[in-house]
Simulated assay, not measured.
Amino acid sequence: MNDRMATPWGELTLARFPEDPRDRLRAWDASDAYLLRHLAASGTSLSGSVVVVGDRWGALVTALASHRPVQITDSYLAREATRANLRRNGVDEDAVRLLTTRDTPPDRIDVLLVHVPKSLALLEDQLHRLAPALHEGTVVVGTGMVKEIHTSTLRLFERIIGPTRTSLAEQKARLVLSTPAPGLVRTANPWPYRYELPDGVGVVSGRTVVNHAGVFCADRLDIGTRFFLQHLPRTRDAERVVDLGCGNGVVGTAVALANPRAHVLFVDESYQAVASAEATYRENTRGPGQPESSPAPSGSAEFLVGDGLTDVPNGSVDVVLTNPPFHSHQATTDATAWRMFTGARRALRPGGELWVIGNRHLGYHLKLRRLFGNSELVASDAKFVVLKAVRK
């Protein structure tokens, strides 16, 4: 939905991406508005290098576009929303420099604005990456809803940036005000993190997973994926398989190891996730003695950051495997799952299969029957179901 946001620099019309007239979720929240009011009221100079991290739908950089900010985001959807919101408000897209969390950050930052992410690990990684560009006069302001800012959040700012305090809450939002400390001794950035998979999960048992910060279940195998790995389809020969919403790529890597002739496409809207998936795949499929940068000899793979299967040709895929998220930031929604299912139906060839794992209570079998005309229960336990739908 389109929504209007009042800022000290004028009123903006904003929307999420992809835009859906049925979606009642706003493209900004009270913490965005609070941060912008604070900048105006405090007289913060925005004439230098302004960097905005974690701007969920581009509201902050759209408001500050006249100051030519840099946006750093882990989300492809946030990046596309930013482009759309700039156009929607008559702003030249070149007014904002768009970077991802995988890009090299600016050399110098005079104003750092951080919309606190849901993932504490992602915040830790990004603060470590940005800290060398800060100087004694850098203004650092974080923002988030009260329920998103915890003692652990403040400790990260303290440990990586310098002395930190919080503002009073306004409309259930709060600011984090941090002062860069010259000579602060920081521990090394712990990301990416590596761990070994447990036994009993098929061909990837005992294999190494590489997780960049912010990716789901960064330090262990989650129970849903564990169950899925025990019930994956047996792909044949040179089938084209998609690990949709790939996360750290464990599922797609399992397919590649079980069927060396399969072509596996790893897709996620998170730049951190796709980087993790590629690292996990390379770690487990390169030949003995080959360096990590060497091409994998067994099978072939592609790694795509994007909006689901939007960029995948119709009817070009044999199998899609997915564990859809049912949250968008703090909101519970089935919109993402529905888009994944409809995208899979379009991308699958006739006779192609969509395999889904999800919590039992989500009722995915009803959505699959509505969309595909069929849904088969492959496996279940007390919490999860594995479902299969066939493109007729």
Rank of each mutant, 00 (worst) to 15 (best):
T153F: 07
T153W: 10
T153P: 11
L154Y: 01
L154M: 12
R155T: 14
R155C: 00
R155H: 10
R155F: 03
R155P: 00
L156E: 03
L156N: 02
L156F: 00
L156C: 06
F157V: 01
F157Q: 01
F157E: 00
F157S: 01
F157P: 00
F157H: 02
E158S: 13
E158W: 05
E158F: 01
R159S: 13
R159I: 00
R159Q: 14
R159K: 12
I160T: 03
I161M: 02
I161L: 05
G162R: 05
G162V: 02
G162W: 03
G162D: 01
G162C: 02
P163Q: 01
P163W: 00
P163C: 03
T164L: 07
T164W: 01
T164G: 04
T164E: 05
R165I: 11
R165A: 12
R165N: 04
R165W: 03
R165Q: 10
T166H: 14
T166P: 04
T166D: 09
T166Y: 04
S167P: 06
S167H: 08
S167F: 03
S167W: 09
S167Q: 12
S167L: 06
S167M: 11
L168M: 06
L168R: 15
L168H: 13
A169P: 13
A169D: 05
A169E: 10
E170M: 08
E170C: 08
E170S: 12
E170L: 11
E170D: 08
E170V: 14
Q171I: 03
Q171C: 11
Q171G: 04
Q171D: 15
Q171N: 15
Q171L: 11
K172P: 04
K172S: 15
A173D: 09
A173W: 12
A173G: 10
A173I: 08
A173S: 15
A173K: 11
A173V: 06
R174V: 15
R174H: 11
R174C: 09
L175T: 10
L175G: 04
L175F: 11
L175P: 06
V176R: 11
V176Y: 08
L177I: 15
L177G: 07
S178D: 10
S178H: 07
S178N: 09
T179C: 05
T179Q: 14
P180K: 09
P180T: 05
P180V: 04
P180W: 06
P180M: 07
P180L: 10
P180I: 06
A181I: 00
A181V: 04
A181P: 00
P182W: 11
P182C: 11
